[in-house]
Simulated assay, not measured.
Amino acid sequence: MLSSENFSTSESQNVQSNVNLEEVSVGRKVKHDKFGVGTIVSAVKNGDDMKVTIAFDNMGIKQLMFSMAPLKLI
């Protein structure tokens, strides 16, 4: 379930619009501006977007829409 803590209005645009969603996969490391470094543990295609579940090193598990979150693939 997606919770309101996962989204904020300041996170409404992702700079990753040029990222090929084929690169978003389980096991891939990402960096989020607020939550830090994490590992994708689930990735489900949702239309032109991807719903990802990420286990962040210091912030626990979060579910985010890839296009809405400030994520960088690392």
Rank of each mutant, 00 (worst) to 15 (best):
V30T: 11
G27M: 09
E22Y: 05
A55V: 11
E11Y: 02
S12G: 05
S67Q: 04
L2D: 08
N14E: 12
V37Q: 15
S67I: 02
K31E: 15
E11K: 03
G27H: 09
L73T: 06
R28A: 15
D48V: 13
K34S: 12
R28P: 00
K72C: 13
A43M: 01
S67R: 09
Q16D: 12
T53P: 01
A43T: 00
N46D: 15
N6H: 03
H32M: 11
A69G: 03
L2K: 10
Q63A: 07
A69R: 01
D57R: 12
I40M: 09
D49I: 09
V37C: 13
G36F: 09
I54M: 04
I40C: 09
A55S: 15
V52D: 04
S4Y: 04
S12H: 03
M1K: 13
S42M: 01
A55I: 05
V15E: 14
I40H: 06
L21K: 15
V24Y: 07
F35R: 09
G38Q: 02
S8V: 01
T39Y: 06
F7G: 04
S8K: 03
V41Q: 07
S17G: 08
E22R: 11
N6S: 11
N46T: 11
H32W: 10
R28T: 14
L2W: 05
H32D: 14
S42F: 04
K34W: 08
N20W: 02
T9A: 06
E11G: 00
V26Q: 07
E22W: 01
N20P: 01
V26C: 03
L21N: 11
K62I: 00
A55H: 12
L64E: 10
V24H: 07
S12A: 10
I74A: 13
G36L: 10
G36W: 09
K72I: 14
D33C: 01
M1T: 08
F66W: 08
V52P: 06
D48L: 13
F56W: 07
E23K: 09
V19W: 06
A69Y: 01
V19E: 06
L2T: 08
T39M: 05
R28L: 06
Q63Y: 04
S12M: 02
K72M: 14
S67H: 03
